[in-house]
Simulated assay, not measured.
Amino acid sequence: MIFLLLGVLALVVGGCVCVVWAERGGPRWVRVVAALTRGAGELVSSAQKSGRKSGWGSRGDDGDD
């Protein structure tokens, strides 16, 4: 399990590096990876926003202790 998480972390860090490199005019493959990284970020962001509207991820606290 830890190796899977380390792999995901490596992909995320690599994608962020490609985004920064593409902004500075990197090669074509870097721009493609950067576009994929941005697209994945948008998907995650929209999933979180729609999840909040439907109650996904809410703690359910109503203030009563």
Rank of each mutant, 00 (worst) to 15 (best):
Met1Pro: 10
Met1Ser: 14
Met1Trp: 07
Met1Val: 14
Ile2Tyr: 08
Ile2Ser: 15
Phe3Asn: 11
Phe3Cys: 02
Phe3Ser: 12
Leu4Asp: 08
Leu5Ile: 10
Leu6Thr: 07
Gly7Ile: 07
Gly7Thr: 05
Leu9Trp: 01
Leu9Gln: 01
Leu11Arg: 02
Leu11Val: 05
Val12Arg: 07
Val13Met: 00
Gly14Arg: 02
Gly15Ser: 02
Gly15Phe: 01
Cys16Phe: 12
Cys16Asn: 14
Val17Asp: 01
Cys18Leu: 00
Cys18Trp: 01
Val19Tyr: 08
Val20Asn: 00
Val20Trp: 00
Val20Tyr: 00
Val20Met: 01
Arg24Asp: 06
Arg24Gln: 13
Arg24Trp: 10
Gly25Ala: 09
Gly26Pro: 01
Gly26Thr: 02
Pro27Tyr: 05
Pro27Arg: 08
Arg28Ser: 09
Trp29Ser: 11
Val30Ala: 15
Arg31Asp: 11
Val32Asn: 05
Ala34Cys: 06
Ala34Arg: 02
Ala34Lys: 01
Ala34Leu: 01
Ala34Met: 02
Leu36Phe: 02
Thr37Asn: 11
Thr37Gln: 08
Thr37Trp: 03
Arg38Met: 12
Gly39Met: 02
Ala40Thr: 11
Gly41Val: 07
Gly41Glu: 03
Glu42Ala: 15
Leu43Asp: 06
Val44Pro: 05
Val44Ile: 14
Val44His: 03
Val44Thr: 11
Val44Ser: 05
Ser46Gln: 14
Ser46Val: 14
Ser46His: 13
Gln48Met: 13
Gln48Leu: 14
Lys49Asn: 10
Ser50His: 13
Arg52Tyr: 03
Ser54Pro: 00
Gly55Lys: 08
Ser58Ile: 05
Ser58Asn: 13
Ser58Trp: 12
Ser58Glu: 06
Arg59Gln: 11
Arg59Asn: 12
Arg59Ala: 14
Gly60Glu: 10
Asp61Val: 13
Asp61Gln: 15
Asp61Ala: 15
Asp62Ser: 12
Gly63Gln: 11
Gly63Leu: 13
Gly63Phe: 14
Asp64His: 10
Asp64Asn: 15
Asp64Gln: 15
Asp65Tyr: 13
